[in-house]
């Protein structure tokens, strides 16, 4: 980590004209078509769109796990070429290792990277406490509920102190009540840890509650069809869900998604 600090003006994430085409039996399939956006340092940006619209592909490209067919990506000014080690990943499923304890699952990225980190065990304990899992460090994943497992996955994403968190519908496999709880916990933890976050979701209220800014994507191939700023300061209290401005934003977004579903032409109109 002795690299010189990048110029301050560079955004944490820059996506420039990125497209991704997959080969398939019925010819090439375009998953992402010409997407450009930036995420500033410390900003929480959600990508909101219907399932299967190419949002996940976009996240994998930001993480350097998939190469774009066209365009380029950069994290803090450094071009993305290959897997990025300074990002924390979270997926729809917790993907914990059942044979390891909760603590060892949190420490997993450090062990796998082969870069020992001073005080890692203490940091794991602190993160688990922050996620409300203090007494569970020695438990196995199967002893936890789905929501608790996803909290462990969040701690795992944070353990190496990544500059950027990338989350792909991390709460979509949870029940509505657990989900609300997790959204609240994530909002607090991310604000406290001051992480730049790219959050992929198809849930409008979740996106509005968590984000500084929301990019709406249309049907596959994914393009950004609308961009909405959320003016409330973070972290937010659940009470803002009663705010008329909050609900007006949700309705606007719903409308934008409906237009996007009918096709890019209708969305532009």
């Amino acid at each position: 980590m002795s690299d010189p600090a990048p110029p301050r003006a560079e955004p944490a994430i820059r996506v420039s004209g990125v497209a991704k085409t997959y080969p398939s039996r019925s010819g090439p399939v375009e998953a992402v078509a010409g997407v450009s956006f930036t995420v500033a340092e410390g900003e929480f940006v959600s990508i909101l769109g219907p399932s299967g619209c190419g949002k996940s592909t976009l996240m994998l490209m930001v993480a350097g796990l998939e190469a774009p067919s066209r365009g380029s990506l950069a994290l803090a000014g450094r071009p993305v070429e290959g897997p990025q080690t300074r990002v924390g990943l979270m997926f729809q499923d917790a993907t914990l290792l059942p044979w390891k304890s909760v603590r060892d699952n949190v420490l997993f990225p450090l062990r796998m990277s082969g870069r020992p980190m001073a005080g890692a065990t203490e940091r794991a304990g602190a993160l688990l406490a922050l996620a409300g899992l203090s007494g569970f460090a020695d438990k196995r994943p199967r002893e936890l509920s789905g929501g608790m497992r996803q909290r462990v996955a969040l701690c795992r994403a944070l353990i190496a102190d990544p500059a950027i968190l990338l989350m792909d519908e991390p709460f979509s496999a949870l029940d509505a009540i657990t989900r609300d709880e997790m959204v609240l916990a994530l909002g607090e933890i991310v604000a406290r840890e001051r992480k730049t976050t790219l959050f992929i979701t198809h849930a409008i209220r979740e996106a509005v509650f968590l984000s500084d800014r929301i990019l709406v994507m249309g049907r596959r191939p994914a393009t950004v069809v609308a961009e909405v700023a959320v003016p409330f300061p973070r972290p937010r209290d659940p009470a803002i869900e009663a705010d008329p401005a909050f609900n007006a934003l949700c309705l606007d977004l719903k409308d934008a998604i409906h237009r996007a579903m009918r096709g890019p032409a209708a969305a532009a109109a």
């Binding site: 994998l60 993480a63 080690t85 990002v87 993907t95 796998m112 082969g114």
Partner: peptide, 27 residues
């Protein structure tokens, strides 16, 4: 083995051998 788990291994810079030893084989 879950594809996302393998992606996580790649993203932390774990090589194929380490991924076998710690993830794929135990799984």
């Amino acid at each position: 083995v879950d594809r996302d788990l393998l992606r996580l291994c790649r993203s932390v810079g774990a090589g194929a051998w380490r991924t076998y030893l710690h993830v794929r084989f135990p799984a």
